[in-house]
Computed example of a mutant assay.
Amino acid sequence: MKGLLYIISGPSGAGKSTIIKACLKKIFGFTFSVSYTTRSKRPGEVDGEDYFFIDLDTFMKMKENGEFLEWANVHGNYYATSKKFVEEKLQESYGLVLDVDVQGALNIKKSYQDAVYIFILPPSSEDLKKRLTKRGTESEEALERRLKNSQWEMSMMNEFNYVLVNCDIEESTNQLLSILVSEQLKYVRYKEEKKPLYFFKKRKV
């Protein structure tokens, strides 16, 4: 049985990466697809763990060689997902989690309609602005561009299966965890193979 693809998206600053990392620490059988980007590394980010940070020339060569499942120019930087990595992990029966921008999610949907699409929202536009400002990694121009783009991004939430409003990290993590597990337990998957793809990690005492 092939693995199941989870596409997690939403506006920049909604908390996607934080929720995904917290969720995947609690469960086995799932893996995270690290995207490629041409943007600069932010404080605390690790190359190969948060993103593969590459220059524009390298990105364009990989794009021309057909190495990307999807790619998009978002807020002035390029982002992409490795086609080979996704195909290999799905063949290995992993639950594969992708953190992609809305453009990328919609592009993936053209090829993977059976994937699970999850949209993460901030509590409000005002809260989103506060989060982006507090992050302190954007110029005033870049910040305004992200806020403007977020209006279009949020208008696309009807293309997703689930909408999660991130008011509290712990609660949002539990909600995402519930989605990941419940999709694995659907009857249509159970009748194909009795063995579950996930195991909860034991808490440290």
Rank of each mutant, 00 (worst) to 15 (best):
K2M: 14
P196N: 08
Q113L: 13
T31R: 09
D57G: 13
Y78D: 06
S125R: 11
L164Q: 01
Y94A: 12
Y36K: 07
F30I: 07
L4A: 12
S82A: 07
Y112A: 10
F160A: 01
I108W: 00
S124V: 00
S178Y: 00
N174V: 04
K41V: 12
M1P: 13
R131D: 04
I27K: 01
L197M: 10
L177I: 10
P196Y: 07
I27D: 02
D168C: 03
L90Q: 02
K26R: 15
A142M: 14
E140L: 15
F28P: 02
V102I: 03
G66K: 02
Q175P: 00
Y6S: 07
M156P: 01
E87M: 08
D47R: 02
F68L: 01
I20C: 09
E192F: 15
I7K: 02
W152I: 06
V102N: 02
K201E: 05
R145A: 15
G15H: 07
Y51F: 14
L180T: 11
F52M: 06
L132Q: 01
K25A: 15
K83S: 02
G13M: 04
V165Y: 00
F28I: 13
F200Y: 08
Y36D: 01
K134E: 12
K204N: 12
E153R: 03
K89N: 12
K89H: 12
K84W: 00
K202V: 15
V116T: 10
V97M: 05
G44V: 08
E64K: 12
N161A: 10
R146P: 04
E170K: 05
L98P: 06
K41T: 12
Y190P: 07
M154I: 08
V74Y: 07
G95N: 09
L180N: 07
I7W: 02
E92G: 09
E138N: 09
I8Y: 06
D168I: 06
F32L: 09
S124P: 01
F85D: 05
E87H: 10
L143F: 09
L143M: 10
Q151Y: 08
Y36S: 05
F32P: 02
N73W: 13
L98V: 08
S150P: 01
P196V: 10
C23H: 13
S139H: 10
L128M: 04
I118T: 01
L96R: 06
M62R: 11
E92R: 10
E126G: 06
K63L: 10
D168K: 06
Q91L: 13
D57Q: 15
A105W: 01
K202M: 14
T81D: 08
N77V: 15
Y187N: 12
F52I: 04
D127L: 05
F85K: 07
K191H: 12
L24S: 05
F119R: 01
K83H: 03
